[in-house]
């Protein structure tokens, strides 16, 4: 159908315009300088099915109401800035396509829950990062190898799932326990602890297991699986937490034995 051979019909016009839809977004607004309480405000936006919720927010901010505040950086699902509650579920605005939502109804967008609301869709992430720092998210090793630290494929695979975390807080702020108990470490901190606890190169597993073997540690997890559903990276969060629970009960993490030849020692 490269060339139009229509006789007199209007089919040989410019390419058909892509279907656009008017979508209503109902956004939970809050300006700490003006409002005592957050309130809902609705916006009608013209969108394509391939647009994302982030595009809708951009259109509102750029064309309708410049005061709308939200975080975003990379806009491609890597930086983890724009986690928000979209139709009652934690999602990244930059990874949620309009075609995957029911646009016959308004789309509700609000800030993630359980962290202090600062403005519109922005929350204070500091308590979240505080928990993250507490589990010591860095390699703890006593020796200094000349080149790299050798690790077998099976050993690398052991903690592969939890390396994907982008710290967007979608999991932690979807957790009913975290909503009512802000002291709980939360799924994200445990996921990042898991990433090092099950790493054969790391020597700080016991330290982290002790930190998480706490009233506010892994035992607060009630396996609601909200975190696993919310994770934009598809991390099996609840499974990771269960593995940490088991590691605490056993006293050590089950890391596969290396199938590599003994590493050549320094002369």
């Amino acid at each position: 159908m490269a060339t139009a051979v229509a006789e007199g019909s209007s089919a040989a016009q410019a390419p058909a315009p892509i279907q656009a839809f008017t979508v209503t977004l109902i956004i939970r607004r809050f300006d700490p300088e003006k409002d005592a309480e957050p309130y809902w405000q609705d916006f009608d936006v013209e969108l394509y099915a391939t647009d994302r919720v982030l595009d809708a927010l951009h259109k509102i901010k750029w064309e309708q109401d410049g005061s709308l505040s939200f975080r975003r950086s990379c806009a491609h699902g890597v930086c983890g800035s724009d986690a928000m509650r979209i139709n009652g579920r934690n999602r990244l605005a930059c990874k949620t396509l309009i075609k995957d939502l029911d646009i016959s109804k308004p789309i509700y967008v609000e800030a993630i829950k359980g962290l202090p609301l600062e403005k519109d869709l922005i929350v204070d992430m500091e308590p979240f990062f505080e928990s993250y720092r507490e589990i010591q998210p860095f390699l703890i090793a006593s020796d200094k190898p000349e080149k790299e630290r050798i690790q077998s494929a099976a050993q690398r695979e052991r903690f592969d799932d939890t390396t994907k975390c982008i710290l967007c807080a979608a999991c932690t702020s979807s957790c009913p326990v975290f909503w009512t108990d802000g002291q709980y470490f939360g799924p994200a901190a445990i996921v990042n602890a898991h990433r090092f606890i099950f790493d054969s190169r790391d020597e700080g597993a016991q330290v982290r297991l002790d930190i998480l073997n706490d009233k506010e540690g892994v035992w607060r997890c009630r396996t609601t699986f909200n975190c696993t559903e919310a994770c934009p990276r598809g991390i099996q969060v609840t499974k990771a937490i269960a593995e940490v629970k088991n590691a605490i009960m056993r006293g050590s993490a089950d890391i596969p034995v290396s199938d590599l030849a003994p590493t050549p020692q320094r002369a």
């Binding site: 957050p38 509650r85 009652g88 979807s174 009913p176 699986f225």
Partner: peptide
């Protein structure tokens, strides 16, 4: 108070 979080089976079983 904002929308009710729409968890799935895991949340409702809890």
């Amino acid at each position: 108070a904002g929308t009710l979080y729409r968890g799935r089976e895991g949340m409702w079983s809890w």
